[in-house]
Design a protein around this nucleic acid. Structure first.
Ligand SMILES: [Mn+2]
Ligand SMILES: [Mn+2]
Ligand SMILES: [Mn+2]
Ligand SMILES: [Mn+2]
Lengths: 220, 220
DNA sequence: TATGAAAGTTAGACTAACCTAACAAATATA
DNA sequence: TATATTTGTTAGGTTAGTCTAACTTTCATA
């Protein structure tokens, strides 16, 4: 049985491994920063996780999840994203409110609960942010990797996922009536600053910044 | 903000106060036994709860919830019973499976979650065991206090709540097709051992023990 | 009302998860 | 390559929640 805290470390390591594609290892400071603790604290915990064979760890070395650690991490991520979906779909939580509560719900221990919840939600593949929900067997559905910023003038696409899940960005998207599945047409790309003029569904074209365009994943 | 453990102590004290009607105080050993900890542990925690003005406590004295403690305890109980209802109604958990998971879910911190959950469930008044679900304002719906064992031959009643929520009893009820709302007709009362012959809905009469009859609340 | 049992407390210890401060190793850069 | 910066570790301490063992108070009853 893993503690609340151990679970958070495993999930963090997993998410860090997704971030730097092809470089799944993380460092002590990186983990500490991600989890909001001091490096000394992370060192202690990493030693403990190593004892439990959940991570590979060597003094001054990079950290990697073991098979067992990865399996556990994925299970937490699965719970997190299923709960987010529940809150969004069934309880009318908004896009930016789900994460905080899911952060707690992901630690509820009950295999039956997760599976029943998934069934109740109709076996969703993606959470409200467009992130893939791991299956019970650990498989993770494939996701769009194309950023809106990579689109060319004239191209049409659909919003697949948000890369930046900060409250500020999510609330801004809501204001623009952009959600997962919204159709976007790129009208013009401004070479000067990388900003774009886009048409949201059938609304009037509007300008968005490069930062914005680099924060949305789309599917053509 | 109360810790997971502090919340469990408050809920325990509240439930103990319901048990001995008119004697809402509890003792240290009683609390410890209820929570599965040693008396020394309970003493420490009670001192802490007193510091936070959640209980009245004096060395060697009886323990009582303060207004604030009661309010908090009721909030936990409300969450517990709403979650039990969710698990039972929406996720097809059985009668005897809901408690253990609700024991964890009751500690999730989010006022919005509780209220949205209540709404999603259609503002239920009773949980799957027939226990009253406290309202957001702290009010607790009135419940049937009559035991099946108090019924006389010839009387008809409906099952209102289970007094004993042990797995063994709940599973036995399930086997007999007895649930909240089931109609029972008392055919005969055996003076010798307090056992009853009852008719469950329209099935053939069958005999039940006094212990059984003292474990079900009914409404005439 | 004396006394033994029951109920409750205290002291001291442990573990998990955190911290700060001081130190050591690894890496980048002049 | 020598040194400065970054990265990571160690030592020692704290708090919450638990324990055991020894002690004290209260209460029932002989
Ligand atoms: Mn979490
Ligand atoms: Mn998400
Ligand atoms: Mn609980
Ligand atoms: Mn219940």
């Amino acid at each position: 049985m893993l503690s609340y805290t151990e679970e958070n470390y495993l999930k963090a390591l997993l998410k860090l491994s997704f971030q730097n594609e092809e470089r799944p290892e993380a460092g002590t400071n990186e983990m500490a920063a991600y989890l909001g603790v001091k490096p000394a604290t992370a060192t202690d915990m990493l030693k403990k996780l190593k004892e439990k064979d959940l991570v590979t760890y060597k003094k001054y070395g990079k950290i990697l999840l073991t098979e067992s650690g990865k399996k556990n991490g994925i299970a937490i991520l699965r719970k997190h994203r299923l709960w987010e979906t529940f809150l969004y779909e069934k309880l009318d939580f908004s896009w930016d409110e789900v994460h905080e509560v899911a952060e707690q719900l992901e630690h509820i221990q009950s295999a039956k609960l997760v599976d029943k919840l998934e069934e109740f939600l109709g076996f969703p593949e993606f959470d409200p942010h467009g992130d893939p929900i791991p299956k019970a067997n650990g498989e993770i559905p494939a996701t769009a990797k194309t950023l809106l910023s990579e689109m060319k003038a004239g191209q049409t696409c659909k919003v697949a996922a948000v890369k930046d899940t900060s409250t500020l960005f999510l609330q801004y998207l809501e204001k623009l009536h952009i959600t997962i599945g919204t159709t976007l047409k790129v009208i013009e790309v401004i070479a000067f600053d990388g900003s774009l003029s886009i048409q949201i569904e059938n609304e009037e074209p509007r300008s968005i910044s490069m930062k914005f365009a680099e924060s949305l994943f789309v599917q053509s």
